[in-house]
Computed example of a mutant assay.
Amino acid sequence: MTYLIDAWLDRPHPYLRILHRETGEVCAVLQEEALDELRDLGDLDLASLNSSEPLILKELVRNLFLFCYARALRPHDEAH
Rank of each mutant, 00 (worst) to 15 (best):
L73V: 00
V26A: 07
A70G: 05
C68R: 05
A47R: 14
E59T: 15
R17G: 03
L66D: 13
N50W: 03
K58V: 05
R17H: 12
P75D: 01
D40S: 04
V26N: 07
I56F: 07
I18G: 02
L35A: 11
A34W: 01
L73E: 02
C68V: 05
D43Q: 10
A70S: 10
L46I: 15
C68N: 02
Y69E: 12
G24F: 07
L57Q: 14
T23C: 04
T23I: 08
S52H: 08
D36E: 09
E59V: 11
L57E: 08
Q31G: 05
L19R: 14
S48R: 15
L38H: 07
L38S: 07
E22G: 14
R21I: 05
Y69F: 10
L38K: 07
H76V: 09
H20N: 14
L57C: 12
V61H: 03
P54R: 11
S51N: 08
L38V: 10
V29C: 00
L64D: 02
R17A: 07
L73F: 00
V26T: 15
V61P: 02
H20I: 06
P14G: 01
F67L: 04
G24Y: 06
L46S: 15
S51D: 06
R71M: 04
L19W: 13
H20S: 09
P75T: 00
K58T: 13
